[in-house]
């Protein structure tokens, strides 16, 4: 009986993903279909250099503002604004608000790459940022 109770409890807890957790963030992307996040792909995209119509010939990448060591602070290439680290290991609060994450993906993918990032690209980057 006791074992059964524990079993039921553990199942119900495992289904109950805590809002604001990394799991909840990844889970929100799964609604678009089952995707396997690949940290290696995320890292490649993070450092890939783009020149877009709006960048006026200048090179842009995620790392140009956030830096290539995501555990450290970055600096915006144009405004000089200090940007707090992106890695969850040093700055977990970045990943608590799914809406905010998606807002910044939209803005920054358009600014950097010149288009929105696909769901796959987003989860790859998130996997990279949360495994450093």
């Amino acid at each position: 009986m006791k074992i059964l109770l524990i079993l039921i409890l553990s199942i119900s807890f495992s289904k109950n993903i805590q809002a604001g957790s990394l799991e909840a963030l990844f889970d929100s992307y799964q609604q678009a279909g089952v995707i396997t996040p690949k940290a290696e792909q995320g890292k490649l995209l993070w450092n890939k250099v783009f020149i877009t119509e709006k960048s006026k010939g200048k090179e842009r990448s995620c790392s140009s503002c956030h830096g290539s060591d995501v555990r450290k602070s970055g600096k915006h290439i144009r405004t000089g604004k200090l940007i707090e680290p992106m890695a969850s290991s040093v700055n977990l609060k970045r990943f608590r608000d799914v809406k905010k994450t998606k807002k910044w993906f939209k803005r920054n993918c358009k600014w950097t790459i010149g288009r929105e990032c696909s769901v796959q690209e987003q989860v790859d980057i998130l996997k990279y940022l949360t495994t450093q």
Partner: peptide, 12 residues
Amino acid sequence: LENHFDENAELD
């Protein structure tokens, strides 16, 4: 806001 002083500051 998509072209906010050369930044993308889009909001929903």
